[in-house]
Nucleic acid binder design. Sequence first.
DNA 1: TCTTTTCGCTACCAGACGTAGCGTATATGT
DNA 2: ACATATACGCTACGTCTGGTAGCGAAAAGA
Lengths: 211, 211
Amino acid sequence: MAVPTDAPARAKGRPRNAATDHAILEATRSLLAELGWGGLTMSHVAQRAGVAKTTLYRRWPSKNELVVDAVAVLFDDLEMTDLGSLRADIEAVVQRFAALLSRPETQAAMLALFAEGTRDPLLRGRIRESIVDPQKRLVHQGRANAQARGELPPDVDEATADQEVDIIFDTIAGAVEHRILVSGQPACEEWISRFTTLLLAPLAALSTGRP
Amino acid sequence: MAVPTDAPARAKGRPRNAATDHAILEATRSLLAELGWGGLTMSHVAQRAGVAKTTLYRRWPSKNELVVDAVAVLFDDLEMTDLGSLRADIEAVVQRFAALLSRPETQAAMLALFAEGTRDPLLRGRIRESIVDPQKRLVHQGRANAQARGELPPDVDEATADQEVDIIFDTIAGAVEHRILVSGQPACEEWISRFTTLLLAPLAALSTGRP
DNA sequence: TCTTTTCGCTACCAGACGTAGCGTATATGT
DNA sequence: ACATATACGCTACGTCTGGTAGCGAAAAGA
């Protein structure tokens, strides 16, 4: 799920201006933060990016797709660390996720995108594969790292392992998002530490069965 | 923040038909559920409610305001139970919260509302006092019930108690919202049970200090 | 130079929000 | 009963937006 476009990879005619992609996505994000989904118009995006409206539609098939790409880029540099302990890894990834969500333009863009996703099942699918699934993969990887270190027991079953990743993912991402987007409070270092403590206690027991 | 309108309270001319308010809000909710936000048009709402489109605009200044009012009432009947055990209480409230979030019209309105709130601090305050704070109060009450039953240790300090309620609230509400709104999976009974187990383990230790 | 693709521009369509004006219905106050 | 003031339905309209079509010019490779 790279950054850009819809384009064929011809080497024949005039190449597309690569900077234009970035300008369009940046304009989309800033306008989304300023005006919300309702206020965001393709004409305005084109104007701020300094391109013609038709250029937008040559690169993205619709407004929905454009906004998905504009927001998805923000999550691209979220990667799982391997700092030697599960606690450190969780705190590190939560820290960076929280920092990302604390930016006002990310908040507006992300919420507007998910709100629109409730209208459009197709858009929801695109959101899922571009944003949600990559994040879930981070949990999977962090869990694998912890297993390699012996901090977590190995998988007993692929299905239950997936279930476990699901529930951990929803808990971590949900708590951070709720703290910042809904409660409107900062996810400061102390909060992250307390939350990680809350989460770590039952983690080892989870895969072995009910305690 | 009652249910209805925008109207002055004159006692002079012909009064507004009170049933019309209800019919419009009901039509808005049902159409929202059927067609999603994108399929919802003011003309269609007017038609189903059996009123003229102009009547809508005499009572609500815009489509957004109408939808917010139409759905705000849905959160009113969320109450804390007292079933005799912390686990049962948590499962019960999560169950009802999840059921509420599973309704398509709730999803659309809620996300749209929070998205709009990122741009409008006034709206954000109204959301906070109408939706967020009442929900947080549920957590506070459930915790007090558990303390009365001896399942949780009593408060050592008001400030840390508030901190605790905050983190529990963000974790519970966040996980359910993320599961349903972001991951797009149902919060079935088994998931609720697993999540409650995950949550219960560290709860008693949390207020006594770091384990 | 010739070909291919990009790009900006103008014009255009369909649909949705939101408004204006008019006539009529229904309440209160005297 | 009468005047007054408001609600209501209806039709028509203005405006904006998403998205498309066609044109000529610019920029690259062959």
